[in-house]
């Protein structure tokens, strides 16, 4: 089985937000929930770089470790998913996540956030693959259809890579060798405890 990862090549990313709206459109993610977002470092200055970030599907995922109801699980593809049926919206995974991935709908009164939502790597949730119940809670399950995450597939400049970690690392390495520069595999060390050295 593949070890799925994301890699945003910041030297390609132009902050076009295709990844963001593709995700919204694919999964009907409501206003205010941002499974993916694009952050620009050094905005407006030389050296400006944008990075598209979502759940990185960490190795030894912090979110899973702190969840008081233990509702996370990791698939055979190393995708970190959770059950909205079990989530109590406590917010702990958000404190633990190094990438700000978990999102909460504001429901009800103070403190009671709704069920946590985050990037599923377009792999749905615990329900039967591609069932309406799965769609309603987690969005489409592209992985089950043999497709990859829509955010990466639609990335305007092919900055955002998704797929088996070893494969995307190779693509990135080749790019850096060819062009002679690279700002790094953003988030890899923190998420996967490894990085790509070129």
């Amino acid at each position: 089985m593949a070890r799925m990862k994301f890699l945003c090549d910041a030297d390609r990313c132009i902050e076009c937000n295709a990844c963001v709206t593709a995700c919204k459109n694919e999964h009907e993610v409501p206003w205010g929930i941002n499974r993916r977002r694009v952050v620009t470092i050094n905005d407006g200055k030389p050296g400006e770089r944008s990075v598209s970030m979502a759940c990185m599907h960490c190795t030894d995922a912090p979110c899973a470790a702190v969840c008081p109801v233990d509702c996370f699980y990791t698939t055979a593809d190393a995708v970190v998913l959770h059950s909205k049926d079990l989530c109590i919206g406590c917010g702990y995974c958000f404190y633990a996540c190094p990438f700000g991935a978990p999102q909460y709908p504001k429901v009800g009164n103070f403190g009671s956030r709704g069920k946590m939502d985050k990037c599923t790597y377009c792999a749905g949730g615990p329900e039967a693959d591609n069932s309406s119940a799965e769609y309603a809670k987690y969005g489409a399950n592209r992985l089950a259809e043999g497709k990859l995450p829509i955010c990466a597939e639609m990335c305007s400049t092919k900055a955002l890579l998704a797929g088996d970690g070893a494969m995307i690392a190779t693509i990135y390495k080749e790019r850096v060798l060819k062009r002679g520069y690279g700002s790094g595999a953003w988030g890899w060390k923190v998420a996967y405890k490894e990085t790509i050295t070129v």
Binding site: G32, N34, R37, V38, V39, T40, I41, N42, D43, S50, V51, M53, P62, A65, V66, Y92, Y95, A96, C97, P98, F99, G100, W186, G187, V190
Partner: peptide, 29 residues
């Protein structure tokens, strides 16, 4: 932590990477 600019109003989202999350997890757990 690494922080930048973001166009959505949720300013928390402007933090790109907060390794402190892992430390907090240690603390908590």
């Amino acid at each position: 932590h690494l922080e930048g600019r973001i166009s959505i109003p949720d300013q928390k989202a402007s933090v790109l990477i907060q390794p402190a999350g892992r430390e907090w997890r240690e603390f908590h757990n």
